[in-house]
């Protein structure tokens, strides 16, 4: 359903899309059924001369089952939805696969800054690559992110990954993603953060291993040089 509009580029994007599809089918069924019966009754029971409305209290068992059976069925649908919702949620948010690299993401009014670990794959070393509004990652690798905020709430949202996580000042929130296709896509800030909220778009560059290595090589000297300055 969603990949009609936004390509799915993370390992869990399809799971989320399928969950949305499942919910769409189940609630779509109920919606259409209810609306059909509803409009049918309106047409079927329009006032006519000489016909009187029926007197139905709805308190007898034989009548009440018309609402109690459907409500059992709704419960069954709910159980399905809860099961798959939690399954997907667990995968995306509750477990953390072993990372290949970790990136630091910092939101502030009104820009995203990213710290990439650089050639040694370790954060906090001299070859870290710092960028503003550009996140470069390698396809097919598990990344952890450490999400922070300098001032107000922001939300790190990558629609092609189906990923969203608020950044909260005073906390470091860890999450993960693994891209399964290359390309350049939008990163949004999805939580209102002041007058520049519409002015903090960023881009994610999902690169093949070769291109990513080239990018790292190209960036490293620059940041090393600036890191050496007092």
């Amino acid at each position: 359903m969603i990949d009609q509009y936004v390509v799915a580029l993370s390992t869990y994007a399809n799971d989320i899309d399928n969950l949305i599809l499942l919910i769409g089918v189940l609630v779509g069924f109920w919606l259409i059924l209810c609306e059909l019966v509803f409009f049918y009754f309106i047409i079927r029971f329009r006032a006519k001369d000489g016909r009187r409305a029926e007197y139905i209290t709805g308190e007898e068992k034989s009548h009440k089952r018309w609402i109690s059976y459907p409500h059992m069925l709704v419960l069954v649908c709910d159980v399905f939805i809860v099961f798959f919702a939690i399954k997907v949620w667990y995968d995306v948010k509750q477990q953390l696969p072993e990372p290949y690299e970790t990136v630091r993401i910092v939101g502030q009014q009104w820009a995203w800054s990213f710290v990439h670990p650089g050639a040694d794959h370790e954060l906090g070393t001299a070859d870290d690559i710092k960028t503003v509004d550009e996140l470069h990652i390698e396809v097919g690798k598990v990344y952890h992110f450490k999400l922070e905020s300098r001032d107000v709430l922001h939300s790190f949202s990558v629609p092609v990954f189906r990923l969203k996580q608020d950044a909260v000042p005073g906390r470091v929130i860890t999450g993960w993603f693994e891209a399964n296709g290359t390309g350049t896509h939008d990163i949004q800030c999805a939580e209102i953060c002041g007058i520049g909220h519409a002015l903090m778009p960023a881009q994610i560059f999902i690169e093949s291993p070769e291109r990513h290595a080239a990018w790292v090589a190209e960036q490293s000297p620059v940041t090393l040089a600036s890191a050496n300055q007092p």
Partner: peptide, 21 residues
């Protein structure tokens, strides 16, 4: 009814990751 059923997408945590905000 339309408002009600679309709420299910948002109450289901896994789907709300995408739909939130």
């Amino acid at each position: 009814l339309i408002g009600g059923v679309t709420g299910i997408f948002l109450g289901a945590s896994g789907a709300d990751i995408y739909f939130h905000d």
